[in-house]
Amino acid sequence: MSLLDKHSIRQSENLERTMKSVQRWVAAAIVIGLMVGSTALLAGEMKVDAATASEAIAQAEAAQKKADSVNGEWRDTGKFIKNAKKAAEAGDYAKAIRLAKKAESEGNLGYQQAVSQSELKIPSYFKAMYQ
């Protein structure tokens, strides 16, 4: 056996060892990640209480305000927030959170819609008329 061969064997042994430890780590990470992830998910779904509802409503109102600041608010966003508040008052936190999330996402979409058009752009079907 030449020196070179010995060297390569040692190298491959090393590689194998490293691979094994990497595999172990990855597996551990996956398990931990899954545990953390599922607990977080469970916690996220389970927390249907007054505090979560009022937090969701506050976030919806912030998004609505942001959309309104650029004249991008949609028709029903305010109605959803109003109904979310009513539901929260009546103790139906699940409904309140669902409506608030809907309103928040409308607020974000309306804001994006307006901001993406901050510059006037004459559409191509009309632009040709200026020539």
Binding site: N71, G72, R75, E106, Q113, Q117, L120, P123, Y125, F126
Partner: peptide, 18 residues
């Protein structure tokens, strides 16, 4: 007039020009 707005994403021009 040329700005798309609302959930249905229309501008005045979408209907009254295009």
């Amino acid at each position: 007039y040329f700005t798309r707005r609302g959930q249905l994403n229309f501008s005045c021009a979408s209907c009254h020009v295009q």
